[in-house]
């Protein structure tokens, strides 16, 4: 009995000590972690919507695990929407963010947040050469993948040799656009 009590006591003592230290430690780090996340989010929003962090504000419309929607507000006017979407790539999840004009006429810019595609092939979706073509594409949820360079707003050129990754990005954008549109429509009613 004495042994048992000692076991329980020792284990509990160290656990409580550990909990206390971690809780205390957390008060230092938590604030910074939050700041880091916020800074990262604002940087992303800024790069895909052209939001000016000094004058513009943003509002979270929806925040799910695989989908986030932000409204970028300049003064009282909606300046743009930013959409975070997620989907399966060639090897693992691809997570991306893109900005759209408030009337969903076109995509402002697109940025990849997370990917684990094959280096040199699928991972080229992070390259500037591929990403810049997204500017001005139609945000109608029915973009098409093509093999050759295109100027059409409803067509996106695939990376040669990385058809699957290119398709995945396109699907995520199409799906997320449709979802964002539906949400905004519902909110507007």
């Amino acid at each position: 009995m004495k042994d048992s009590l000692r076991m329980i006591a020792v284990l509990t003592f160290f656990a409580v000590l550990s909990g206390g230290i971690l809780g205390w430690f957390n008060t230092f780090t938590e604030k910074r972690v939050k700041e880091n996340k916020l800074r990262e989010l604002i940087a992303s929003l800024q790069s895909v919507t052209g939001m000016d962090p000094n004058t513009d504000t943003y509002k979270i419309v929806r925040k799910d695990k695989d989908f986030e929607l932000y409204r970028i507000i300049s003064g009282t006017e909606t300046k743009a929407y930013a959409v975070v979407g997620e989907g399966n790539g060639y090897q693992d999840k691809i997570r991306l963010i893109f900005g759209v004009k408030p009337d969903f006429s076109e995509i402002i810019a697109l940025k990849i947040l997370e990917e684990k595609e094959t280096p040199g092939l699928g991972a080229r979706i992070e390259e500037e050469g591929y990403l810049k073509q997204w500017k001005g594409k139609a945000a109608n949820g029915s973009l098409k993948l093509v093999k050759t360079p295109t100027e059409n707003p409803y067509e996106v050129q695939a990376i040669s040799g990385a058809t699957i990754s290119s398709t995945a990005v396109l699907d995520i954008v199409n799906k997320s656009v449709a979802r964002a549109k539906k949400l905004i429509k519902e909110a507007g009613k």
Binding site: D3, I8, V10, T12, A15, G20, G23, W24, N26
Partner: peptide, 26 residues
């Protein structure tokens, strides 16, 4: 606060498992 929560959670978990281990031991 998070500190108090973690303290209590850790303590409770350890207590429960300490009891389980001591029971198993006996």
């Amino acid at each position: 606060s998070a500190a108090v929560t973690s303290l209590l959670v850790m303590g409770a978990v350890a207590l429960v498992f300490g009891i389980i281990i001591s029971l198993a031991y006996s």
